[in-house]
Amino acid sequence: MLASLTTMMSHGFKNSKQDFSFGPWRVTATKNHIMKSKDIERLADEMNMPALPEMLFGDNVLRIQHGEGYGIEFNAIDALRRVSNMNDAVKVACAQEWQESRTDSELSKDVIRPYDWTYTTDYRGTLIGEGMQIKVTETTDRIDMEKLKAREHIMFFDEVLLFEDELHDHGVSMLSVKIRVMPTSFFLLLRFFLRVDGVLIRINDTRLYHEAGKEYMLREFSTRESKIAELKGVPAALYTDHNEIAQHLPLKETKCEKLELPLTQLPTTDDEVVH
């Protein structure tokens, strides 16, 4: 097992890159400064969106790559490309409710636009690899969360923020990813957290688990959400703590997948596929 850390300063932000080897896998966590405004504007035009998150870390990435070249990574730009791919019914209803509750506020007129201003994404990672690709299939297998609760030495841990927006001071929209590596496995959590003050709280989680020696990873995607008016008996102080409030949000959707590792060289012309 090997860990290395390099740091540098740029534009007032602390940049870092951490690498950790776990058997044939290399985990890389890269943190960089916020994208410059001109680059954000150019990206917004490319995505046909009037605006992107205020704090967009376009160069931040958490990558898990096998020695053969294939793997999976998590980055902000691919996540934003998945915005608006989910059911919009709740989003639109909440936008109207939010606007009506702030009829005297000029801010509401700026925020309610013909796009998903919450930046809700169902992103579950980007498959990488030239010539060899991980195969994704639906499965009934589940990640053994009880096993993950066992006290096991954590050899490596890191968390990478991909984007954050304060929704014109009326809430927060945030995407981050963290990973921990134990002697026999690694576990990753990608979390999208949305809080629209007085209206809605939503959490989209992607969990990824791999045991050493297994020929697959397990990936689980889930959506939990609730209108704030329906959170009866839940202290308002918990609304800003995504770890605490997640326990009080009803489960709306779940999807379990098996990411089968390639055993032989497979011809392909695509370098990466977003799922």
Rank of each mutant, 00 (worst) to 15 (best):
15 N>A: 07
2 L>Q: 15
232 K>V: 08
64 I>K: 00
269 T>I: 11
50 P>Q: 10
140 T>N: 11
153 H>D: 14
181 V>K: 00
15 N>V: 05
75 N>E: 07
213 G>V: 10
224 R>A: 09
25 W>S: 02
11 H>N: 14
93 A>F: 14
44 A>M: 12
239 Y>P: 01
266 L>E: 15
258 K>E: 03
41 E>T: 14
91 K>S: 13
122 D>L: 14
209 Y>L: 00
218 L>D: 02
29 A>P: 03
24 P>T: 03
213 G>Y: 10
72 I>Y: 01
90 V>F: 14
215 E>N: 15
254 T>P: 04
255 K>N: 13
22 F>L: 07
227 K>M: 15
48 N>F: 13
100 E>T: 12
63 R>H: 03
53 P>G: 10
5 L>H: 14
69 G>C: 05
268 T>V: 15
73 E>S: 10
13 F>C: 07
137 T>K: 15
196 V>Q: 08
113 R>M: 08
185 S>R: 13
150 A>R: 14
153 H>N: 15
194 L>C: 07
184 T>Y: 04
86 M>W: 05
174 M>L: 15
62 L>I: 00
104 D>E: 08
221 F>N: 07
57 F>Q: 05
149 K>H: 06
145 M>I: 14
12 G>N: 07
223 T>V: 15
79 A>H: 05
241 D>N: 14
141 D>T: 07
269 T>E: 14
102 R>E: 04
256 C>F: 04
120 T>A: 03
239 Y>Q: 04
17 K>M: 09
229 A>L: 13
56 L>I: 09
110 D>Y: 07
47 M>A: 05
200 L>K: 09
8 M>I: 05
154 I>S: 12
51 A>G: 14
47 M>E: 00
195 R>S: 02
203 I>D: 01
137 T>W: 09
112 I>G: 03
153 H>M: 09
243 N>Y: 04
78 D>C: 12
193 F>C: 00
270 D>T: 11
260 E>Q: 11
28 T>W: 00
81 R>S: 11
159 E>L: 09
49 M>G: 11
171 G>F: 01
183 P>R: 09
116 D>I: 04
161 L>P: 10
11 H>P: 04
60 N>H: 06
185 S>K: 11
37 S>N: 13
62 L>N: 00
35 M>G: 06
4 S>Y: 09
242 H>L: 08
70 Y>T: 02
193 F>M: 01
132 M>H: 11
3 A>G: 12
238 L>Y: 15
68 E>K: 08
244 E>M: 12
127 L>T: 00
148 L>W: 05
7 T>I: 10
85 N>Q: 14
137 T>F: 11
201 I>Y: 04
116 D>L: 05
68 E>P: 01
202 R>V: 06
156 F>L: 03
129 G>V: 02
139 T>Q: 03
173 S>M: 06
247 Q>C: 04
159 E>N: 12
6 T>P: 03
252 K>E: 07
100 E>M: 13
68 E>D: 11
201 I>T: 06
24 P>Y: 06
60 N>P: 08
114 P>E: 04
119 Y>V: 05
270 D>G: 06
269 T>A: 11
66 H>T: 02
233 G>T: 12
35 M>W: 09
81 R>D: 09
106 E>M: 09
